[in-house]
């Protein structure tokens, strides 16, 4: 049976870490909520209580509407694609094909790179007229495309960069899961005459569920919190076509110096993340119990 925690030990063990955590996680979250009901202080007058004025502004903000649509497309596009690719990569790397070490290196390398480095690499790759993308299109006699400079392609181009960076990390988790699938299950299925596709769908897939839950939750959080590439590659442009929510918070707060609206957007983001996480957990858990 565990002992009672003496107060002295409690202060030493929990005091510093918990106060740091509260100061930079809970306090700012609550402070954002409070600040969202106040307007910005200026040199002439102090900040004043404005009620839900900032929240009314949310509904009239056309840029925000665009940003939320972009974020939704970004999350819905990148997460399933990255997960699908990660499973495929894990199957390849886990197979008995020659060269799996090099394959693993190739798939996992982008994950090791900072998003800033990845952004530079792809900025160069996409560069109209200069980059490899244009050179390859040129070989086939196709005109070069301004991937990042056109409203039609900028968001998709950013999504591809994100998938490129993340799929390798998810592959590692699937690789671990694949290696822990008991071989006797697969052997049994084989004895029953199941082909490798059947074995994958009926034996392996259900065992990958917990990994998928873990990866999907992580991917969702990442889709919201990682916007380094947006800052470096497009600054949300052209015409907001590639702006994501956290990038918009950054721009409103630190470029336009509108801290009150920044706080309001932060509250919006925290609420959205909370709802999404609960929803995702609930849906995936239900599916997991279904079988």
């Amino acid at each position: 049976m565990n002992k009672r925690l003496p107060i002295g030990l409690a202060i030493i063990m929990l005091g510093v870490p918990c106060s740091l955590l509260v100061a930079f996680t809970h306090y700012p979250a609550i402070q954002a909520l409070i600040n969202s009901f106040w307007n910005n202080a200026s040199s002439r007058r102090p900040s004043r209580f404005v009620g839900v004025e900032n929240y009314q502004a949310l509904f009239e903000d056309d840029r925000l509407a665009q940003v939320l649509i972009n974020s939704t497309i970004y999350a819905l596009g990148t997460i399933p694609l990255a997960i699908g690719l990660a499973i495929g990569m894990a199957l390849l790397v886990n197979s008995r094909l020659p060269g799996t070490t090099l394959m693993r290196l190739s798939f996992f390398m982008p994950t090791m790179l900072p998003m800033i480095a990845v952004a530079n690499i792809w900025l160069f790759f996409y560069a109209p007229g200069i980059g490899l993308a244009s050179q390859i299109l040129g070989i086939f006699g196709l005109p070069s495309i301004n991937f990042l400079g056109s409203t039609d392609t900028s968001l998709a181009s950013m999504m591809f960069v994100a998938v490129w960076k993340e799929a390798g990390l998810f592959m590692i988790f699937y690789l671990a899961a694949l290696q822990s699938v008991p071989t006797n299950l697969k052997d049994a299925a084989k004895l029953e005459g199941a082909g490798s596709v059947r074995i994958f769908i009926d034996v392996v897939m259900p065992l990958l569920r917990p990994t998928t839950i873990f990866v999907a939750v992580n991917a969702l959080i990442n889709a919201f919190r990682l916007v380094d590439h947006v800052i470096v590659m497009t600054e949300g442009g052209p015409n907001n076509s590639s702006a994501l929510l956290l990038y918009y918070i950054y721009e409103v707060t630190f470029r336009q110096r509108d801290f009150a609206y920044g706080a309001t957007l932060t509250v919006l983001m925290v609420i959205m993340l909370g709802i999404l996480a609960i929803f995702q957990f609930w849906v995936l858990n239900r599916k997991a119990h279904y079988q």
Binding site: H26, P28, I221, L226, L246, T253, T266
Partner: peptide, 19 residues
């Protein structure tokens, strides 16, 4: 404590900068 897994410091840049 586990709240930080979901609401990571990146998301709270506005208020953390003010702090």
């Amino acid at each position: 404590i586990m709240v930080q897994l979901l609401i990571s410091p990146e998301i709270l840049i506005v208020e953390n900068y003010l702090t």
